[in-house]
Amino acid sequence: MSQPTVTATGLTLRYRATVALRDVSFSLGTGVTGLLGPNGAGKTSLLRILATSIVADHGDLRVLGADPRTAPGRLAVRRRLGYLPQNPGFYPNFTAFAFVDYVAILKELTDRPARHDEVRRVLAAVGLSDQRTRKIKTLSGGMRQRVALAAALLGDPGLLVLDEPTVGLDPEQRLRFRELIAGLGEGRTVLLSTHQTEDVTTVCQRVIVLDAGMIRFEGDPVELATVARGRVWSSPVRAPEALVSWRTGTGVHRNVGHPPPGAPLVEPTLEDGYLLLLDPARAHGAGAAA
């Protein structure tokens, strides 16, 4: 692996009494990394730290070879960063083109013809060439999300930070978005936060599981599945030994936890591994909801 794009050591962040991140260390190289975790795990806080929106209380961070805690470092990061916030706001009366163009100026693309070419390029990349003259208030949720992604893609950033980009998209839009993101990971570092395990299995080369502000797992998506090897079994009814159990479409219960001797083991998926890693109390809640 070449020089990592992001190196984080011991990041800690508090909001008053709440600890959002505890001693988080990891590194990111080229390719798409999924940041998986339940709601409130600290994903958005971590992404905002990487995006220079907030600064961690403790810990060291190198992003694209710069230290975002210093003013010059922060500027250097911002010049090569693409960030899609969880709730990207828009100016409803701007057209898609005008909004991306505005962001392009704020990204210091000053040469007008070149900037307009770049805006057209990123709008084309997200498949919005035909909609670029429409006002944002007339666009659907999925299209707005793509406008925001287009803005993040401006200037061919070395690091793309995407905060739950697939939330609120319909299945077809989601597929297209995944395809887009998978392509973006070629030759560039993409960090994608999500709580959808499918996002990870389909586009990510690496995965980080974050729960209660701590990293529970960092590695290959396939290896995340192997965490649950020998821990998933099926049963006709909900097994009392299971940490998480849910009824599948075939009427059989799928259980994750400590299988009783002789239980019919099932090949684990990434989702099984993920559920097993979570805090048991919360995992139960997730299982009940599933």
Partner: peptide
């Protein structure tokens, strides 16, 4: 600025 989340992390 409704799009503060986006504009606040740009180089300008």
């Amino acid at each position: 600025d409704p799009s503060a989340a986006t504009t606040s992390v740009l180089p300008v």
